[in-house]
């Protein structure tokens, strides 16, 4: 069975094999370039995020896919849902802006809170941090797609499953001719 799987590869000559590897590379790089292109278009370093917690219910549920933009000319306003990063935390947080102070020179500081949380986010911020500023913002939610992100959540919860799926896809592409 395994033997016949690699039959195609064995029969390839040098150039066919290089092409096979390159076409696999092109599949990966197409995805990468689409992602980077979205980054440029939306201005956000992570234009699509998945909601991981229920802290924004009933607006967003666990597993919702969010589309973000982060245009510097658009001001942050109270009531908007922002995605922000906190020092010392790997995963960005999606919460609503509760209070906002804006200076004449354009600098802002604001406080956020999850709709479903009973207290504001000061406890989540880095030690001693009372406000968020523009540089903490990853983007602002512009649209969402319910449930689609559950796939990503399962994949991250079962990393072995994720690697198995990825490995299968990679082997299929590498081994199968055209």
């Amino acid at each position: 069975m395994l033997d016949s799987l690699f039959d195609d590869v064995k029969r390839m000559n040098k150039r066919q094999f290089i092409y096979q590897v390159l076409s696999f590379g092109m599949i990966v790089s197409s995805a990468l370039m689409i992602w980077k292109g979205l980054m440029v278009v939306t201005g956000s370093e992570s234009p699509i995020v998945v909601v991981l917690s229920g802290s924004m219910e009933p607006a967003f549920h666990r597993g919702d896919l969010l589309f973000l933009t982060n245009y510097p000319e658009e001001p942050v306003r109270v009531g908007e849902i922002v995605v922000f990063k906190v020092e010392g935390r790997d995963i960005p947080i999606v919460h609503r802006v509760l209070k906002l102070h804006e200076k004449n020179n354009g600098t802002v500081k604001f406080l956020t809170k999850g709709d479903n949380n009973s207290v504001d986010d000061r406890g989540l911020y880095a030690q001693g941090q009372l406000w968020l500023t523009k540089k903490d913002v990853v983007g602002r939610a512009r649209g969402f797609l319910p449930y689609v992100g559950m796939v990503t959540i399962y994949m991250n919860e079962y990393p072995k499953f994720k690697f198995a799926v990825l490995a299968c896809l990679a082997i299929y592409v590498l081994v199968h001719r055209e």
Partner: peptide, 24 residues
């Protein structure tokens, strides 16, 4: 093969550059 390699090279370059000088 040259066109394919060039395309993959461009993508790798973008990846590297973005890693060295983060997004904005």
């Amino acid at each position: 093969l040259f066109l394919c390699a060039l395309a993959v090279g461009v993508a790798l370059y973008a990846l590297l550059w973005d890693y060295l000088y983060p997004f904005p």
